[in-house]
Protein backbone atom coordinates (compact mmCIF):
# COMPACT_ATOMS: atom_id res chain seq x y z
CA UNK A 1 0.00 0.00 0.00
CA UNK A 2 2.90 2.32 0.82
CA UNK A 3 4.37 1.71 -2.60
CA UNK A 4 1.08 2.64 -4.23
CA UNK A 5 1.06 5.91 -2.28
CA UNK A 6 4.66 6.60 -3.27
CA UNK A 7 3.75 6.00 -6.92
CA UNK A 8 0.81 8.38 -6.68
CA UNK A 9 3.01 11.05 -5.13
CA UNK A 10 5.56 10.47 -7.90
CA UNK A 11 2.87 11.00 -10.52
CA UNK A 12 1.88 14.23 -8.80
CA UNK A 13 5.48 15.45 -8.74
CA UNK A 14 5.84 14.75 -12.46
CA UNK A 15 2.95 17.05 -13.17
CA UNK A 16 4.42 19.98 -11.24
CA UNK A 17 6.02 22.28 -13.81
CA UNK A 18 9.76 22.73 -13.44
CA UNK A 19 8.88 26.00 -11.84
CA UNK A 20 10.36 29.42 -11.98
CA UNK A 21 12.74 29.62 -9.07
CA UNK A 22 13.41 32.75 -7.06
CA UNK A 23 14.44 35.75 -9.14
CA UNK A 24 18.24 35.62 -9.40
CA UNK A 25 20.39 38.35 -7.84
CA UNK A 26 22.17 40.28 -10.59
CA UNK A 27 24.14 43.53 -10.63
CA UNK A 28 21.85 46.42 -11.64
CA UNK A 29 21.98 47.59 -15.23
CA UNK A 30 20.32 50.45 -17.07
CA UNK A 31 18.14 49.97 -20.13
CA UNK A 32 20.75 51.70 -22.33
CA UNK A 33 23.55 49.43 -21.12
CA UNK A 34 21.39 46.36 -21.57
CA UNK A 35 20.36 47.24 -25.13
CA UNK A 36 23.89 48.21 -26.07
CA UNK A 37 25.23 44.89 -24.77
CA UNK A 38 22.56 42.99 -26.71
CA UNK A 39 23.67 44.80 -29.89
CA UNK A 40 27.26 43.69 -29.45
CA UNK A 41 26.52 40.23 -28.10
CA UNK A 42 28.12 37.31 -29.90
CA UNK A 43 26.69 34.19 -28.31
CA UNK A 44 28.55 31.74 -30.56
CA UNK A 45 27.18 28.32 -31.42
CA UNK A 46 24.18 27.12 -29.43
CA UNK A 47 21.25 24.74 -29.49
CA UNK A 48 17.98 24.89 -27.66
CA UNK A 49 14.28 24.31 -27.57
CA UNK A 50 11.94 27.20 -28.23
CA UNK A 51 8.38 27.13 -27.00
CA UNK A 52 5.66 29.30 -28.41
CA UNK A 53 2.59 29.83 -26.28
CA UNK A 54 0.13 31.56 -28.54
CA UNK A 55 -3.14 33.03 -27.24
CA UNK A 56 -3.48 35.68 -29.94
CA UNK A 57 -6.82 34.38 -31.16
CA UNK A 58 -5.86 34.07 -34.82
CA UNK A 59 -7.63 31.55 -37.04
CA UNK A 60 -5.75 28.33 -37.85
CA UNK A 61 -3.99 28.55 -41.19
CA UNK A 62 -3.39 25.30 -43.05
CA UNK A 63 0.12 26.40 -44.01
CA UNK A 64 1.07 27.42 -40.49
CA UNK A 65 -0.61 25.45 -37.70
CA UNK A 66 1.53 27.37 -35.22
CA UNK A 67 -0.59 30.49 -35.86
CA UNK A 68 -3.63 29.15 -34.05
CA UNK A 69 -4.01 29.31 -30.30
CA UNK A 70 -1.98 26.73 -28.47
CA UNK A 71 1.58 25.82 -27.74
CA UNK A 72 4.15 24.60 -30.19
CA UNK A 73 7.80 23.86 -29.83
CA UNK A 74 10.75 24.07 -32.15
CA UNK A 75 14.29 22.87 -31.78
CA UNK A 76 17.00 25.20 -33.05
CA UNK A 77 20.70 24.80 -33.70
CA UNK A 78 23.03 27.58 -34.74
CA UNK A 79 26.74 27.70 -35.50
CA UNK A 80 26.72 31.29 -34.24
CA UNK A 81 27.09 32.72 -37.73
CA UNK A 82 25.17 32.02 -40.92
CA UNK A 83 24.40 28.35 -40.55
CA UNK A 84 21.43 27.06 -38.66
CA UNK A 85 18.82 24.37 -38.38
CA UNK A 86 15.24 24.59 -37.14
CA UNK A 87 12.92 21.66 -36.72
CA UNK A 88 9.20 22.21 -36.22
CA UNK A 89 7.50 18.99 -35.15
CA UNK A 90 3.71 18.87 -35.42
CA UNK A 91 2.12 15.60 -34.35
CA UNK A 92 3.50 12.90 -36.56
CA UNK A 93 5.04 15.17 -39.17
CA UNK A 94 7.86 17.63 -39.14
CA UNK A 95 9.16 20.63 -41.05
CA UNK A 96 12.87 21.18 -41.07
CA UNK A 97 14.73 24.28 -42.21
CA UNK A 98 18.46 24.10 -42.78
CA UNK A 99 20.66 27.04 -43.74
CA UNK A 100 24.03 25.66 -44.80
CA UNK A 101 25.62 29.04 -45.50
CA UNK A 102 24.70 29.31 -49.20
CA UNK A 103 21.35 27.53 -49.54
CA UNK A 104 18.24 27.35 -47.44
CA UNK A 105 16.59 23.92 -47.49
CA UNK A 106 13.04 23.49 -46.34
CA UNK A 107 11.73 19.96 -45.80
CA UNK A 108 8.13 18.98 -45.15
CA UNK A 109 7.66 15.36 -44.11
CA UNK A 110 3.90 15.41 -44.77
CA UNK A 111 4.31 15.50 -48.55
CA UNK A 112 8.05 14.75 -48.63
CA UNK A 113 9.01 17.87 -50.50
CA UNK A 114 12.23 19.78 -50.30
CA UNK A 115 12.30 23.44 -51.25
CA UNK A 116 15.70 24.81 -52.10
CA UNK A 117 16.36 28.52 -52.29
CA UNK A 118 19.60 30.49 -52.34
CA UNK A 119 20.34 32.36 -49.15
CA UNK A 120 19.85 36.09 -49.43
CA UNK A 121 23.11 37.91 -49.94
CA UNK A 122 24.23 40.91 -48.02
CA UNK A 123 25.48 41.45 -44.53
CA UNK A 124 23.88 39.02 -42.15
CA UNK A 125 24.82 40.94 -39.02
CA UNK A 126 25.66 44.56 -39.29
CA UNK A 127 27.57 45.57 -36.20
CA UNK A 128 26.66 49.08 -35.13
CA UNK A 129 29.57 51.50 -35.38
CA UNK A 130 29.13 52.66 -31.82
CA UNK A 131 26.79 50.37 -29.91
CA UNK A 132 26.53 52.66 -26.91
CA UNK A 133 25.47 55.63 -29.03
CA UNK A 134 23.16 53.42 -31.08
CA UNK A 135 21.54 52.02 -27.94
CA UNK A 136 21.07 55.50 -26.51
CA UNK A 137 19.45 56.52 -29.79
CA UNK A 138 17.14 53.49 -29.75
CA UNK A 139 16.10 54.10 -26.16
CA UNK A 140 15.55 57.81 -26.85
CA UNK A 141 13.36 56.93 -29.81
CA UNK A 142 11.39 54.39 -27.77
CA UNK A 143 10.97 56.78 -24.83
CA UNK A 144 9.02 59.18 -27.05
CA UNK A 145 6.06 56.80 -26.89
CA UNK A 146 6.90 54.25 -24.21
CA UNK A 147 8.47 53.67 -20.88
CA UNK A 148 11.59 51.52 -21.14
CA UNK A 149 12.92 49.96 -17.98
CA UNK A 150 14.86 47.06 -16.65
CA UNK A 151 12.32 45.56 -14.29
CA UNK A 152 14.05 43.05 -12.09
CA UNK A 153 15.38 39.67 -13.06
CA UNK A 154 13.95 36.32 -14.02
CA UNK A 155 15.04 32.78 -14.62
CA UNK A 156 14.44 31.58 -18.17
CA UNK A 157 15.52 28.15 -19.42
CA UNK A 158 17.53 27.73 -16.22
CA UNK A 159 19.57 30.89 -16.94
CA UNK A 160 19.56 34.21 -15.11
CA UNK A 161 18.11 37.00 -17.15
CA UNK A 162 17.29 40.70 -16.95
CA UNK A 163 13.72 41.68 -17.74
CA UNK A 164 13.54 44.59 -20.16
CA UNK A 165 10.03 46.03 -20.13
CA UNK A 166 8.46 48.25 -22.75
CA UNK A 167 5.11 49.72 -21.86
CA UNK A 168 3.10 52.22 -23.90
CA UNK A 169 2.93 55.77 -22.61
CA UNK A 170 -0.52 56.63 -21.18
CA UNK A 171 -1.36 58.70 -24.30
CA UNK A 172 -0.96 55.72 -26.61
CA UNK A 173 -4.25 54.14 -27.68
CA UNK A 174 -3.28 50.51 -27.98
CA UNK A 175 -4.51 47.06 -27.02
CA UNK A 176 -1.05 46.16 -25.73
CA UNK A 177 -0.19 46.58 -22.09
CA UNK A 178 3.41 45.56 -21.96
CA UNK A 179 6.15 43.81 -23.90
CA UNK A 180 8.78 42.06 -21.79
CA UNK A 181 12.07 40.77 -23.14
CA UNK A 182 14.20 38.55 -20.93
CA UNK A 183 17.89 39.07 -21.75
CA UNK A 184 20.47 36.52 -20.68
CA UNK A 185 22.69 38.07 -18.02
CA UNK A 186 25.87 36.37 -19.20
CA UNK A 187 25.59 36.04 -22.98
CA UNK A 188 23.29 39.05 -23.48
CA UNK A 189 20.98 37.35 -25.94
CA UNK A 190 17.18 37.62 -25.75
CA UNK A 191 15.78 34.48 -24.14
CA UNK A 192 12.08 35.18 -24.00
CA UNK A 193 9.54 37.57 -25.44
CA UNK A 194 6.24 38.09 -23.64
CA UNK A 195 3.41 40.20 -25.02
CA UNK A 196 0.69 41.21 -22.59
CA UNK A 197 -2.58 42.70 -23.77
CA UNK A 198 -4.88 44.96 -21.79
CA UNK A 199 -7.58 43.22 -19.81
CA UNK A 200 -5.80 39.90 -19.39
CA UNK A 201 -3.21 38.77 -16.90
CA UNK A 202 -2.13 35.85 -19.08
CA UNK A 203 0.31 36.63 -21.88
CA UNK A 204 -1.18 36.90 -25.35
CA UNK A 205 2.06 35.56 -26.73
CA UNK A 206 5.10 34.07 -25.13
CA UNK A 207 8.02 32.93 -27.22
CA UNK A 208 11.13 31.76 -25.47
CA UNK A 209 13.72 29.13 -24.84
CA UNK A 210 12.80 26.33 -22.51
CA UNK A 211 16.26 24.94 -22.74
CA UNK A 212 19.44 26.45 -24.15
CA UNK A 213 23.00 25.19 -24.37
CA UNK A 214 25.96 27.17 -25.66
CA UNK A 215 28.86 25.33 -27.21
CA UNK A 216 30.16 23.83 -30.42
CA UNK A 217 27.59 22.06 -32.58
CA UNK A 218 27.93 19.03 -34.80
CA UNK A 219 28.69 20.48 -38.29
CA UNK A 220 26.63 17.74 -39.95
CA UNK A 221 23.52 19.44 -38.53
CA UNK A 222 24.08 22.32 -40.93
CA UNK A 223 24.07 20.25 -44.10
CA UNK A 224 21.08 18.79 -45.86
CA UNK A 225 20.90 16.14 -48.53
CA UNK A 226 17.45 15.52 -50.00
CA UNK A 227 16.48 11.99 -48.97
CA UNK A 228 15.65 9.36 -51.59
CA UNK A 229 12.07 9.63 -52.81
CA UNK A 230 11.72 13.34 -52.05
CA UNK A 231 10.46 15.93 -54.51
CA UNK A 232 12.90 18.82 -54.80
CA UNK A 233 11.61 22.23 -55.86
CA UNK A 234 13.91 25.13 -56.60
CA UNK A 235 12.75 28.59 -55.69
CA UNK A 236 14.64 31.64 -56.90
CA UNK A 237 15.46 34.31 -54.36
CA UNK A 238 13.01 37.17 -53.88
CA UNK A 239 10.34 35.79 -56.19
CA UNK A 240 7.66 37.07 -53.88
CA UNK A 241 8.46 40.70 -53.32
CA UNK A 242 9.61 41.48 -56.86
CA UNK A 243 6.06 42.03 -58.08
CA UNK A 244 5.95 45.29 -60.03
CA UNK A 245 3.34 47.82 -59.13
CA UNK A 246 2.87 46.60 -55.56
CA UNK A 247 1.64 49.67 -53.74
CA UNK A 248 3.56 50.66 -50.63
CA UNK A 249 1.37 50.51 -47.55
CA UNK A 250 0.38 53.78 -45.91
CA UNK A 251 1.36 54.27 -42.27
CA UNK A 252 -0.87 56.40 -40.07
CA UNK A 253 0.29 57.49 -36.65
CA UNK A 254 3.42 56.46 -34.82
CA UNK A 255 4.46 54.54 -31.76
CA UNK A 256 2.13 51.92 -30.32
CA UNK A 257 -1.00 53.13 -32.15
CA UNK A 258 0.48 52.90 -35.63
CA UNK A 259 -2.03 51.76 -38.24
CA UNK A 260 -0.89 50.25 -41.52
CA UNK A 261 -3.24 50.56 -44.48
CA UNK A 262 -2.48 48.37 -47.47
CA UNK A 263 -4.18 46.90 -50.51
CA UNK A 264 -5.92 43.66 -49.59
CA UNK A 265 -4.40 40.68 -51.41
CA UNK A 266 -6.33 39.62 -54.48
CA UNK A 267 -6.17 36.70 -56.83
CA UNK A 268 -6.13 32.99 -56.25
CA UNK A 269 -3.94 32.99 -53.21
CA UNK A 270 -6.04 35.54 -51.34
CA UNK A 271 -7.74 34.00 -48.33
CA UNK A 272 -11.53 33.79 -48.40
CA UNK A 273 -12.55 36.41 -45.88
CA UNK A 274 -16.18 37.00 -46.77
CA UNK A 275 -17.50 34.45 -44.32
CA UNK A 276 -15.24 35.55 -41.45
CA UNK A 277 -15.22 38.59 -39.27
CA UNK A 278 -17.88 40.99 -38.11
CA UNK A 279 -19.50 43.37 -40.63
CA UNK A 280 -18.75 47.01 -39.77
CA UNK A 281 -19.37 50.30 -41.51
CA UNK A 282 -18.32 53.90 -41.06
CA UNK A 283 -17.63 57.10 -42.95
CA UNK A 284 -14.95 55.17 -44.86
CA UNK A 285 -17.44 52.63 -46.23
CA UNK A 286 -18.30 49.05 -45.37
CA UNK A 287 -16.07 46.19 -44.43
CA UNK A 288 -15.36 43.35 -42.09
CA UNK A 289 -13.59 43.57 -38.78
CA UNK A 290 -11.34 40.95 -37.23
CA UNK A 291 -10.37 41.28 -33.60
CA UNK A 292 -7.69 39.37 -31.75
CA UNK A 293 -6.22 39.75 -28.30
CA UNK A 294 -3.51 42.13 -29.47
CA UNK A 295 -4.79 43.77 -32.60
CA UNK A 296 -7.64 44.64 -34.90
CA UNK A 297 -7.92 44.49 -38.67
CA UNK A 298 -10.56 45.90 -40.98
CA UNK A 299 -10.88 44.70 -44.55
CA UNK A 300 -12.96 47.19 -46.50
CA UNK A 301 -15.20 46.26 -49.39
CA UNK A 302 -13.15 48.52 -51.68
CA UNK A 303 -10.07 46.37 -51.12
CA UNK A 304 -8.14 48.16 -48.41
CA UNK A 305 -6.90 46.48 -45.27
CA UNK A 306 -6.07 48.37 -42.09
CA UNK A 307 -4.16 46.65 -39.30
CA UNK A 308 -2.88 47.83 -35.95
CA UNK A 309 -2.41 46.88 -32.33
CA UNK A 310 -5.25 49.26 -31.60
CA UNK A 311 -8.98 49.26 -30.85
CA UNK A 312 -11.48 49.55 -33.68
CA UNK A 313 -11.99 53.29 -33.21
CA UNK A 314 -8.36 54.10 -34.08
CA UNK A 315 -8.61 52.04 -37.26
CA UNK A 316 -11.78 53.87 -38.22
CA UNK A 317 -10.08 57.24 -37.75
CA UNK A 318 -7.07 56.13 -39.78
CA UNK A 319 -9.30 54.88 -42.62
CA UNK A 320 -11.27 58.14 -42.65
CA UNK A 321 -8.15 60.30 -42.93
Amino acid sequence: MGAALAGAVGLGLLAVPAGAGAAPELPPVTAEELISSVMTADPGPFNGTVKLDNQLGLPALPQLPQAANGTSTATVWSDGDRKGRVSLPTGQTERTLVADGTTVWSWNSADRTVTKSPESEGPHRRPAADPTAAATEVVKHLRATSTVDVDGTAEVAGRSAYELVLAPAPTERTLLREVRVAVDAEKRVPLQLTVLATGSSDPALRLGFTDLTFGAQDPSLFTFTPPPGATVQERPAHAEDAKPGAAKPTVVGDGWDTVVIAKAPTGERAPELAALGKPVSGPWGNGREFTTAVGTAIVTDDGRIAVGAVPEQVLTEALTK
Binding site: A3, A4, G10, L11, L14
Partner: peptide
Protein backbone atom coordinates in the same frame (compact mmCIF):
# COMPACT_ATOMS: atom_id res chain seq x y z
CA UNK B 1 11.51 9.91 -21.14
CA UNK B 2 8.58 11.81 -19.65
CA UNK B 3 6.02 9.16 -20.59
CA UNK B 4 8.29 6.43 -19.22
CA UNK B 5 8.45 8.22 -15.87
CA UNK B 6 4.67 8.54 -15.90
CA UNK B 7 4.36 4.83 -16.73
CA UNK B 8 6.69 4.09 -13.83
CA UNK B 9 4.35 6.01 -11.53
CA UNK B 10 1.37 3.97 -12.73
CA UNK B 11 3.35 0.73 -12.46
CA UNK B 12 4.31 1.49 -8.86
CA UNK B 13 0.71 2.38 -7.95
CA UNK B 14 -0.67 -0.74 -9.65
CA UNK B 15 2.04 -3.02 -8.30
CA UNK B 16 1.70 -1.66 -4.76
CA UNK B 17 -2.07 -2.13 -4.81
CA UNK B 18 -1.76 -5.65 -6.20
CA UNK B 19 0.72 -6.68 -3.49
CA UNK B 20 -1.38 -5.09 -0.75
Amino acid sequence: GESTLRALGYAVVGGGLTVA
